[in-house]
Computed example of a mutant assay.
Amino acid sequence: MDIRYSVNQRDFKRYTTDEIRDEFLITDLFKADEVTAVYSHVDRMVTLGCMPVNEMVSIDKGIDCWKNFGTHYFLERREIGIFNIGEPGVITADGAEYKMGHEDCLYITMGTKEVTFASDDAAHPAKFYMVSAPAHKPCKTTFISIQDANKRPMGDLKTSNARTINQFIHPDVLETCQLSMGLTRLEEGSVWNTMPAHTHERRMEVYFYFDIPEDNVVFHMMGEGKETRHIVMQNEEAVISPSWSIHSGCGTSNYTFIWAMGGENKAFDDMDNIPTAELR
Protein backbone atom coordinates (compact mmCIF):
# COMPACT_ATOMS: atom_id res chain seq x y z
CA MET A 1 0.00 0.00 0.00
CA ASP A 2 1.29 3.43 -0.97
CA ILE A 3 1.06 5.85 1.99
CA ARG A 4 0.83 9.61 1.46
CA TYR A 5 1.29 11.99 4.40
CA SER A 6 -0.39 15.34 4.91
CA VAL A 7 1.03 18.41 3.17
CA ASN A 8 0.47 21.98 4.36
CA GLN A 9 -0.17 24.93 2.08
CA ARG A 10 3.00 26.79 3.07
CA ASP A 11 5.38 24.00 2.05
CA PHE A 12 3.28 23.26 -1.04
CA LYS A 13 4.17 26.67 -2.52
CA ARG A 14 7.79 25.55 -2.90
CA TYR A 15 7.07 22.19 -4.58
CA THR A 16 8.41 21.34 -8.02
CA THR A 17 6.25 19.69 -10.67
CA ASP A 18 7.63 16.25 -9.74
CA GLU A 19 7.04 16.83 -6.03
CA ILE A 20 3.43 17.86 -6.62
CA ARG A 21 2.83 14.75 -8.71
CA ASP A 22 4.53 12.48 -6.15
CA GLU A 23 2.41 13.81 -3.29
CA PHE A 24 -1.04 14.10 -4.88
CA LEU A 25 -1.29 12.12 -8.14
CA ILE A 26 -2.51 8.49 -8.13
CA THR A 27 -1.64 6.40 -11.19
CA ASP A 28 -1.73 2.75 -12.32
CA LEU A 29 -4.93 1.94 -10.47
CA PHE A 30 -5.96 -0.97 -12.70
CA LYS A 31 -3.58 -3.92 -12.79
CA ALA A 32 -4.78 -7.38 -13.78
CA ASP A 33 -5.96 -9.42 -10.77
CA GLU A 34 -4.49 -6.99 -8.24
CA VAL A 35 -5.73 -4.39 -5.78
CA THR A 36 -3.94 -1.04 -5.93
CA ALA A 37 -4.35 1.09 -2.80
CA VAL A 38 -3.18 4.57 -1.80
CA TYR A 39 -3.68 5.58 1.83
CA SER A 40 -3.82 9.35 2.41
CA HIS A 41 -3.40 10.81 5.88
CA VAL A 42 -5.70 13.62 4.72
CA ASP A 43 -8.84 12.48 6.57
CA ARG A 44 -7.44 8.90 6.32
CA MET A 45 -9.07 8.24 2.97
CA VAL A 46 -8.01 5.24 0.88
CA THR A 47 -8.25 5.24 -2.92
CA LEU A 48 -8.27 1.83 -4.61
CA GLY A 49 -8.52 0.18 -8.00
CA CYS A 50 -9.12 -3.43 -9.02
CA MET A 51 -9.33 -5.04 -12.47
CA PRO A 52 -10.20 -8.73 -12.07
CA VAL A 53 -9.31 -10.70 -15.18
CA ASN A 54 -8.52 -14.37 -14.57
CA GLU A 55 -9.59 -14.75 -10.96
CA MET A 56 -11.92 -13.54 -8.25
CA VAL A 57 -9.99 -10.89 -6.32
CA SER A 58 -10.43 -10.10 -2.63
CA ILE A 59 -10.36 -6.47 -1.50
CA ASP A 60 -7.73 -7.49 1.08
CA LYS A 61 -5.31 -8.81 -1.57
CA GLY A 62 -1.89 -7.26 -1.04
CA ILE A 63 -3.08 -5.17 1.93
CA ASP A 64 -1.81 -5.81 5.45
CA CYS A 65 -4.90 -4.69 7.35
CA TRP A 66 -3.37 -5.10 10.80
CA LYS A 67 -0.24 -3.14 9.89
CA ASN A 68 -2.04 -0.35 8.02
CA PHE A 69 -5.33 -0.03 9.93
CA GLY A 70 -5.01 -2.07 13.12
CA THR A 71 -7.96 -4.19 12.00
CA HIS A 72 -8.52 -7.84 11.08
CA TYR A 73 -10.19 -7.00 7.74
CA PHE A 74 -10.42 -3.94 5.52
CA LEU A 75 -13.95 -2.76 6.34
CA GLU A 76 -13.88 -3.54 10.06
CA ARG A 77 -13.96 0.20 10.81
CA ARG A 78 -14.42 1.61 7.31
CA GLU A 79 -17.09 2.21 4.66
CA ILE A 80 -16.47 2.20 0.91
CA GLY A 81 -17.96 3.40 -2.37
CA ILE A 82 -17.26 1.46 -5.56
CA PHE A 83 -17.84 2.41 -9.21
CA ASN A 84 -17.42 0.13 -12.19
CA ILE A 85 -15.95 2.15 -15.06
CA GLY A 86 -15.25 -0.94 -17.19
CA GLU A 87 -17.27 -3.82 -18.60
CA PRO A 88 -19.85 -5.82 -16.58
CA GLY A 89 -18.70 -7.53 -13.41
CA VAL A 90 -19.83 -8.78 -10.02
CA ILE A 91 -19.07 -7.67 -6.47
CA THR A 92 -19.79 -10.14 -3.67
CA ALA A 93 -20.13 -8.65 -0.18
CA ASP A 94 -20.55 -11.15 2.67
CA GLY A 95 -22.24 -13.59 0.29
CA ALA A 96 -24.58 -11.12 -1.44
CA GLU A 97 -23.89 -10.67 -5.17
CA TYR A 98 -24.25 -7.32 -6.94
CA LYS A 99 -24.11 -7.22 -10.73
CA MET A 100 -22.25 -4.08 -11.74
CA GLY A 101 -22.80 -2.52 -15.15
CA HIS A 102 -20.83 0.37 -16.58
CA GLU A 103 -20.93 3.36 -14.18
CA ASP A 104 -23.03 1.55 -11.58
CA CYS A 105 -22.14 2.17 -7.93
CA LEU A 106 -22.16 0.09 -4.75
CA TYR A 107 -21.93 1.45 -1.20
CA ILE A 108 -20.70 -1.16 1.30
CA THR A 109 -21.12 -0.59 5.00
CA MET A 110 -18.64 -0.85 7.83
CA GLY A 111 -18.40 -4.37 9.28
CA THR A 112 -18.57 -6.23 5.95
CA LYS A 113 -15.93 -8.94 6.29
CA GLU A 114 -15.53 -10.35 2.79
CA VAL A 115 -15.61 -8.37 -0.48
CA THR A 116 -14.56 -9.88 -3.80
CA PHE A 117 -14.48 -8.69 -7.41
CA ALA A 118 -14.95 -10.61 -10.66
CA SER A 119 -15.47 -9.81 -14.34
CA ASP A 120 -18.12 -11.40 -16.54
CA ASP A 121 -15.65 -11.72 -19.43
CA ALA A 122 -11.88 -11.91 -18.96
CA ALA A 123 -11.35 -10.42 -22.41
CA HIS A 124 -13.42 -7.38 -21.43
CA PRO A 125 -12.80 -6.89 -17.69
CA ALA A 126 -14.56 -4.73 -15.16
CA LYS A 127 -12.63 -1.86 -13.61
CA PHE A 128 -13.62 -1.13 -10.04
CA TYR A 129 -12.66 2.32 -8.73
CA MET A 130 -13.07 2.77 -4.98
CA VAL A 131 -12.70 5.26 -2.15
CA SER A 132 -12.94 4.28 1.51
CA ALA A 133 -13.40 6.47 4.59
CA PRO A 134 -13.30 5.71 8.33
CA ALA A 135 -16.73 4.92 9.78
CA HIS A 136 -18.21 4.79 13.27
CA LYS A 137 -21.49 2.93 12.69
CA PRO A 138 -22.96 0.44 10.21
CA CYS A 139 -25.31 1.72 7.52
CA LYS A 140 -27.05 -0.20 4.73
CA THR A 141 -25.10 -1.70 1.85
CA THR A 142 -26.82 -0.23 -1.22
CA PHE A 143 -26.57 -0.66 -4.99
CA ILE A 144 -27.26 2.44 -7.11
CA SER A 145 -27.40 2.16 -10.89
CA ILE A 146 -26.40 5.05 -13.13
CA GLN A 147 -30.07 5.35 -14.08
CA ASP A 148 -31.13 5.76 -10.44
CA ALA A 149 -28.53 8.38 -9.47
CA ASN A 150 -29.82 11.79 -8.40
CA LYS A 151 -29.11 13.99 -11.43
CA ARG A 152 -28.32 17.72 -11.25
CA PRO A 153 -27.72 19.48 -14.59
CA MET A 154 -25.29 22.36 -14.17
CA GLY A 155 -23.46 25.00 -16.22
CA ASP A 156 -23.86 26.14 -19.80
CA LEU A 157 -22.23 25.55 -23.17
CA LYS A 158 -21.65 29.30 -23.39
CA THR A 159 -19.18 29.02 -20.52
CA SER A 160 -17.82 25.62 -21.63
CA ASN A 161 -19.04 23.82 -18.51
CA ALA A 162 -22.39 22.18 -19.33
CA ARG A 163 -22.41 19.03 -17.22
CA THR A 164 -24.58 16.65 -15.24
CA ILE A 165 -23.71 15.82 -11.64
CA ASN A 166 -24.86 12.30 -10.79
CA GLN A 167 -25.16 11.95 -7.01
CA PHE A 168 -24.84 8.35 -5.82
CA ILE A 169 -23.47 8.16 -2.28
CA HIS A 170 -25.12 11.31 -1.05
CA PRO A 171 -27.50 12.33 1.79
CA ASP A 172 -30.35 12.74 -0.71
CA VAL A 173 -29.89 9.11 -1.83
CA LEU A 174 -28.71 7.04 1.14
CA GLU A 175 -27.27 7.25 4.66
CA THR A 176 -23.52 6.93 5.26
CA CYS A 177 -21.17 7.89 8.07
CA GLN A 178 -19.09 10.47 6.20
CA LEU A 179 -18.46 9.28 2.65
CA SER A 180 -20.03 11.08 -0.33
CA MET A 181 -19.41 10.14 -3.97
CA GLY A 182 -20.76 10.98 -7.39
CA LEU A 183 -20.01 11.10 -11.09
CA THR A 184 -19.94 14.25 -13.22
CA ARG A 185 -20.09 14.03 -17.01
CA LEU A 186 -19.22 17.02 -19.20
CA GLU A 187 -21.11 17.50 -22.44
CA GLU A 188 -19.31 17.60 -25.76
CA GLY A 189 -17.86 21.08 -26.22
CA SER A 190 -17.47 21.65 -22.47
CA VAL A 191 -14.12 21.38 -20.72
CA TRP A 192 -14.32 23.17 -17.34
CA ASN A 193 -15.37 21.56 -14.06
CA THR A 194 -15.94 23.06 -10.61
CA MET A 195 -15.80 26.70 -11.62
CA PRO A 196 -16.13 29.08 -9.84
CA ALA A 197 -13.49 27.36 -7.73
CA HIS A 198 -13.96 26.66 -4.04
CA THR A 199 -12.42 24.99 -1.02
CA HIS A 200 -14.17 23.33 1.91
CA GLU A 201 -12.26 23.49 5.16
CA ARG A 202 -14.47 20.80 6.67
CA ARG A 203 -13.63 17.95 4.27
CA MET A 204 -11.16 16.70 1.66
CA GLU A 205 -11.83 15.40 -1.82
CA VAL A 206 -10.43 12.94 -4.36
CA TYR A 207 -11.06 13.40 -8.10
CA PHE A 208 -10.74 10.51 -10.56
CA TYR A 209 -10.71 11.45 -14.24
CA PHE A 210 -11.72 9.00 -16.97
CA ASP A 211 -13.23 8.88 -20.46
CA ILE A 212 -10.47 11.28 -21.53
CA PRO A 213 -10.04 10.69 -25.28
CA GLU A 214 -6.67 9.44 -26.51
CA ASP A 215 -3.99 12.14 -26.85
CA ASN A 216 -5.96 14.49 -24.56
CA VAL A 217 -5.35 15.55 -20.95
CA VAL A 218 -7.00 17.42 -18.10
CA PHE A 219 -5.22 20.28 -16.33
CA HIS A 220 -6.32 19.82 -12.71
CA MET A 221 -6.04 23.05 -10.73
CA MET A 222 -5.04 22.95 -7.07
CA GLY A 223 -3.44 25.05 -4.33
CA GLU A 224 -4.79 28.08 -2.51
CA GLY A 225 -6.97 30.37 -4.58
CA LYS A 226 -4.46 33.19 -4.28
CA GLU A 227 -1.54 31.03 -5.50
CA THR A 228 -2.65 28.16 -7.74
CA ARG A 229 -0.77 25.25 -9.26
CA HIS A 230 -1.78 22.45 -11.63
CA ILE A 231 -1.25 18.76 -12.36
CA VAL A 232 -1.58 17.36 -15.87
CA MET A 233 -3.87 14.33 -15.63
CA GLN A 234 -4.01 11.37 -18.00
CA ASN A 235 -6.95 9.01 -18.45
CA GLU A 236 -7.92 6.95 -15.38
CA GLU A 237 -5.80 8.87 -12.88
CA ALA A 238 -6.86 10.30 -9.50
CA VAL A 239 -5.70 13.31 -7.48
CA ILE A 240 -5.85 14.02 -3.75
CA SER A 241 -7.21 17.42 -2.75
CA PRO A 242 -6.65 18.63 0.84
CA SER A 243 -9.22 20.92 2.44
CA TRP A 244 -7.13 24.06 1.80
CA SER A 245 -6.85 23.41 -1.94
CA ILE A 246 -9.12 24.29 -4.82
CA HIS A 247 -10.01 21.36 -7.08
CA SER A 248 -11.15 22.21 -10.57
CA GLY A 249 -10.04 21.23 -14.03
CA CYS A 250 -9.91 22.12 -17.69
CA GLY A 251 -9.49 19.50 -20.39
CA THR A 252 -8.36 19.56 -23.98
CA SER A 253 -11.63 17.65 -24.58
CA ASN A 254 -14.70 16.79 -22.57
CA TYR A 255 -14.34 14.00 -19.98
CA THR A 256 -15.97 12.39 -16.95
CA PHE A 257 -14.83 12.36 -13.33
CA ILE A 258 -15.78 10.72 -10.05
CA TRP A 259 -15.60 12.84 -6.91
CA ALA A 260 -15.33 11.47 -3.39
CA MET A 261 -15.50 13.49 -0.18
CA GLY A 262 -14.91 12.71 3.47
CA GLY A 263 -14.60 14.85 6.57
CA GLU A 264 -16.67 16.72 9.12
CA ASN A 265 -19.94 16.92 7.20
CA LYS A 266 -21.82 15.69 4.13
CA ALA A 267 -23.57 18.92 3.08
CA PHE A 268 -22.92 18.99 -0.68
CA ASP A 269 -23.20 22.77 -0.96
CA ASP A 270 -20.96 23.53 2.04
CA MET A 271 -18.25 25.39 0.10
CA ASP A 272 -16.00 28.39 0.54
CA ASN A 273 -16.41 29.95 -2.89
CA ILE A 274 -13.68 32.00 -4.57
CA PRO A 275 -14.71 34.54 -7.23
CA THR A 276 -13.05 33.62 -10.50
CA ALA A 277 -11.58 37.11 -10.96
CA GLU A 278 -9.77 36.73 -7.62
CA LEU A 279 -7.86 33.56 -8.59
CA ARG A 280 -4.11 33.95 -8.95
Rank of each mutant, 00 (worst) to 15 (best):
G81E: 02
A197Q: 10
E34R: 01
P275S: 04
L179Q: 08
C50H: 02
E34K: 01
A118R: 06
D269V: 11
R78H: 13
N8R: 05
E19H: 15
D156C: 12
R4F: 11
G49Y: 08
S160I: 08
C50K: 04
D272I: 12
L186V: 13
S145H: 13
A149Q: 11
F30T: 03
D28W: 01
G182I: 10
Y15Q: 00
R21F: 05
E23I: 05
G49W: 08
E187K: 00
L179W: 03
G249E: 12
G95E: 06
E79F: 03
V173C: 01
T112E: 06
G263Q: 01
G263H: 05
Y39S: 10
D211E: 15
E76G: 05
T199G: 01
I3N: 09
F208N: 14
D156N: 14
G89Q: 04
F117R: 01
D148F: 02
T228S: 03
P88K: 00
D11V: 15
E278C: 08
P52Q: 02
T17K: 15
Y5W: 13
F128H: 06
Y15A: 00
F257I: 12
M100I: 05
N265M: 02
F74W: 12
T176P: 05
P88N: 07
N54E: 11
D211P: 09
R14N: 15
W244E: 07
F208T: 14
K266T: 15
N54T: 07
G251V: 13
E205C: 01
T116S: 11
Q167D: 09
D211V: 07
I240M: 15
D2V: 14
H41S: 14
F117L: 02
G49I: 10
S58V: 07
D270G: 08
D121P: 11
N68V: 10
M110E: 15
D270F: 10
M261H: 04
V217K: 01
H247D: 12
E19M: 15
E214S: 06
P125D: 10
V131N: 03
E76K: 01
E79H: 02
S119H: 00
S132A: 15
V239A: 12
N84H: 13
A133D: 08
K158R: 07
G49K: 01
K67D: 03
V232P: 11
P213E: 04
F257W: 14
L157N: 10
E79R: 07
M261Q: 08
E175D: 10
C177G: 12
E103A: 07
H220T: 07
E205G: 07
I165Q: 02
M45Q: 10
G89V: 00
T36D: 10
M233K: 07
R280I: 08
C177W: 11
E76L: 07
P138T: 11
N193F: 12
G70A: 12
K140A: 04
D18M: 11
G182S: 09
N166L: 11
M271A: 09
V232K: 14
Q9F: 02
W244Q: 02
P196R: 12
V53K: 03
N166K: 05
G225E: 03
I146C: 13
V38S: 11
C105F: 15
T71I: 12
A96K: 14
E201W: 04
E214T: 06
L157M: 06
A37M: 09
F143P: 05
T194G: 05
I59N: 06
M181F: 04
E103P: 06
V42Y: 12
